[in-house]
Design a binder for these strands. Sequence first.
DNA 1: CGCCTTTGACCGGCGC
DNA 2: GCGCCGGTCAAAGGCG
Length: 424
Amino acid sequence: MEKKIKEDHHQEQQKKEPNSTKNTETTTSSSTHMMNLITTSDHHQMELAGNNMNLSSIFDIPISSPFAYSYFEDHSSNNPNSFLDLLRQDQHQFASSSNSSSFSFNAFPLQNNTNHIFTDLPLSQPVTTKDESSEVVSTTPTSPNATSFSSSSNEADNDNINKEVTVKDQEDGDQHGPKGTKPQLKAKKKQQKKAREARFAFLTKSDIDNLDDGYRWRKYGQKAVKNSPYFILLCRSYYRCTTVGCGVKKRVERSSDDPSIVMTTYEGQHTHPFPMTPRGHIGMLTSPILDHGATTASSSSSFSIPQPRYLLSQHHQPYNIMYNNNSLSMINRSSSSDGSFVNPGSSSFHGFGCDMSQASTSTTAAIRDHGLLQDILTSKIRSDTINTRTNEEDNKCTTIFPGVLFFSGRDRLIYEEFLTGLDN
DNA sequence: CGCCTTTGACCGGCGC
DNA sequence: GCGCCGGTCAAAGGCG
């Protein structure tokens, strides 16, 4: 079987040899153009954005750059103090919603196999692959003043779609009158297709394909992906959330250019709170938010990022990320003199494809999904990053944000090679 | 026994 | 119309 696939693959490659492979274009190359590269120093200096700092300055990248995949590089092998190591220490996670207009981080469980689990960075934007381009629901904000890092809601998106189709239907009706049933049918089908849930994807460097994001998934399919320029046979796995009535899907595949990179694509929004099942481990969560009295109140200007939650926090430090009209700010609540914390722009927290406010309100205090940066930043990072500026000369920037890549010097080279490979 | 993965078959969309 | 491909179905089997 495998042999046959390999043969097929080989034949396919021979067929397509003159041209660049199709699938590579649809997946990886798209990610190439959408990735943003941000370096993180080996010392994990995190640039702390001041209240008046805009996103461009925070990330040292043009915010207008579109990016679909986010990616956390592993440094565990030779960089014991890597950002992700620190993340693992605290076992923080972060997550977000796929179709809300808010951005959030959420705590969630980390797999036991910590040697190879790397943090995933949720996206602020759906993936734009060839067959999914129609599903992109928002444009990347060109400035922090733009629609923030959120993607448009599906509702809005669907509204637009519906309008579009309605207009089309009307046109068809004008042209064909009662005879225009076929085009209408087509339009209807197109509408159905377009109305698919927005997708969000991110990259993870891991040798584990199916990262445990706390939700329960059932694999319902697997396909061989024949898109590697190096004749590497890759498989794409399809998962569905096992919760009844929840139609969230997850697609996992490895990058054809760098098999160590896992591309995970989520589609849809969970219709249920974060699972309390053993797999979710959520009961282990502590509730610093409660302790500090911070809330998960909704806000008009918050981020929305879809996705998975990894890295469960065991001892949360109050730390928040906020997005105001003109600035992104990280606030260290613990630095507050009286320990209190005011979050003027606190976001509504949407867990990985699920409105976590449900979970946090409907469940006991023992379960608290903060949806905050604190959930993924360790105290070390936090302390390091407070009032720390990036050493631009060393090219060791240090920011954390959805859709952003983290690299230290060595890893950045690897990453750049990776991108070069994709471009070629 | 229930849940999960595996895997070949099937279907629909799309490009040629 | 045909073939390719992505996505899904569903039967079979494994595992705890």
